[in-house]
Structure formats: structure tokens, C-alpha cells
Computed example of a mutant assay.
Amino acid sequence: MRLPLLLSIAAWVCAGHVAIAAPAAPETVEIPRSGGVLRAQLYKPEGDGPFPAVIALHGCAGLGSQSVAVRPRYADWAEQLLKTGHAVLLPDSYGSRDVGPQCHAKTRRATARRERLADISAARHWLAEQPWIHRQRIGLVGWDTGATALLWAVRPQLALAKGEPEFRSAVAFYPDCRTSARLGWSARVPTLVLIGGNDDITSPSACRTMVDGAQGRSALARLVVYPGAYHDFDLNGVKPHLTSAADPEVPEQGHLGFDPAARSDAEKRLAHWLGR
């Protein structure tokens, strides 16, 4: 190939005429909430829609950090969901209240049953008002403390405001099921719980008790336990290890780490469950 032609191709690429895969950049949105504003990061597919949507709930470390608005775990999953045509809204429950990581907090300043639940409601209301959203296809996904909040959000006792659309389905990654199991949890929408069999930060056995107890008086509820997997099994690049009490962005005691087989299976199950 002649040099002038090579230079022309290089110039054409540099000018942006060749599509090069790059992570999608989220948009910051502000959502009215009681007592202030709920900031959130929005990943939106190209086009006019209407798109199915997912409200994605961060864990105890928070949505972002000092260097990024969205931690790699959530950006990674947002990319996966974008590929299936979903818009993804990630409420920043901690940053919106000027709260740092809550993994070691003795008294949580954004609890699953109150503040996080209120944020879910505000996020759903905001999404339902957007003309590019399919109002009847809004799903809910959560990790860790966000997944625990999800368990409260799908309970039948939580009454929806008049005209509010119901969630289509929900997926909870390694929630703390212990309180819900004691209170006789059930769900009004199909709910999938994914947890590692060796998760010693939350409790697989409590999740089993919770889901088994809901049978016959609940919408579809399923539990998948991944043998040998730990907490954060979907967090790519993190080798299984014992957490350190010196790190405020991880739970104080227990094991966490990536499990490629569990992550791969979770991707398939998430896409199927949200596509119901």
C-alpha cells in the first residue's frame, strides 16, 4: 500500500470517521426529592426511544469516588445494559447527601428503609415522566446495600402513588436478607436474588430462608447461589481476599472477589430477567 494512501486513512480515522468502541459517558441529572436534590448518572441509548430502563442502586462504598463519578463496577454493568437497549439511571444516594462511604458506618446516614427507599421512588417518578422511556418497562437492580434497599422497594406493603408505573422486575446482587427473612418478606414484582455460596459478609442461608418463605404468597421470587463465590463476585479484576478494616470502601470483615463463572452466569440471568 502506498504511503500517501496510508496517510489518508490515518487522517480519516483521526477525523473521527471510523467508529472506535469507547465507554459511554453518563449524563448528570438532578431529580427533586424531599429535602433536596437527588443527583444521578444517566446512561441513555442513542435515539428517541421509548427505551426500557433500569434504576441501578450502588453499594456501601457509594456510586463514585474522588476521581470518577461512577465506579468501574457500575459503569461496566451500565455498558452491558446499554447493549440490550436499556437506559440506566444510577441515583447517588450518598453524594447527594454529602455522605461518604457507609461500609463501616455504625449509624447509617442513608438507610435502606428510608432514604434509599425514597430515592428509588423519586428516580422512578422522574423516569416515568421522560418521553423517551417505556413507562411499563422500568426495572430495578441493586448491589450490596443497594440490593437490600431493593428488597424493601418491592414489598407489597409499599403502596405506589396514583399513576406511578410498577417495576417490571428486580435483580438483587448479594443483599443482606437477614431482616427481611425475619419479617416474612414477599415481593409484588418478579425478583431475582444472586449471591455467592461463600459470601460471609451477607448470608446466603438467610436469603434462602427469605425466598423459600415467600413461596405461595408472592410474585415470582428466585434465588441463585453460586458455589464457592464470595461477596462482589461480579467485580472484575479483584482477586478473592479478606477485607481490611483500614479500607473504608469495603465491609469491615469477610471475603470478597471476582468469580468469572458466576459473573458470566449473572450477565445472562440479568438480561433474561429484565427482558421478561
Rank of each mutant, 00 (worst) to 15 (best):
A11D: 06
W12M: 14
V13K: 05
A15G: 13
A15N: 10
V18W: 15
P23Q: 15
P23A: 12
E27C: 03
V29C: 03
S34G: 06
G35P: 01
G36Q: 07
G36V: 10
V37F: 07
L38Q: 06
A40E: 07
L42A: 11
Y43E: 02
K44H: 10
P45M: 09
F51Y: 09
A53V: 07
V54W: 07
I55W: 08
H58A: 13
C60N: 07
G62M: 09
S67L: 12
A69Y: 12
Y74M: 13
Q80E: 14
T84E: 11
S93R: 11
S93A: 15
V99N: 01
P101T: 09
P101A: 12
R109I: 10
R109S: 12
R114F: 11
E115C: 01
R116G: 00
D119G: 00
D119M: 03
R124L: 13
H125S: 14
W126D: 02
L127Q: 08
W132M: 08
L140T: 08
T145C: 03
V154I: 04
R155L: 08
R155C: 01
Q157V: 13
L158H: 10
A159S: 10
A161F: 07
K162W: 08
K162D: 11
G163C: 01
E164H: 12
D176N: 14
C177P: 00
R182M: 11
G184V: 11
V189D: 00
P190K: 05
L192N: 04
D200A: 07
I201E: 06
T202K: 09
S205Y: 05
S205I: 13
S218C: 09
R222E: 15
L223S: 01
V224R: 13
Y226V: 09
P227C: 01
G228M: 03
F233A: 00
K239M: 09
A245G: 14
A245S: 14
A245Y: 08
A246E: 15
E249F: 02
E252V: 14
Q253D: 15
H255N: 13
F258L: 09
A261M: 08
R263G: 00
E267D: 14
E267V: 14
K268W: 06
L270I: 12
L270S: 02
A271E: 12
H272N: 05
G275F: 04
R276N: 13
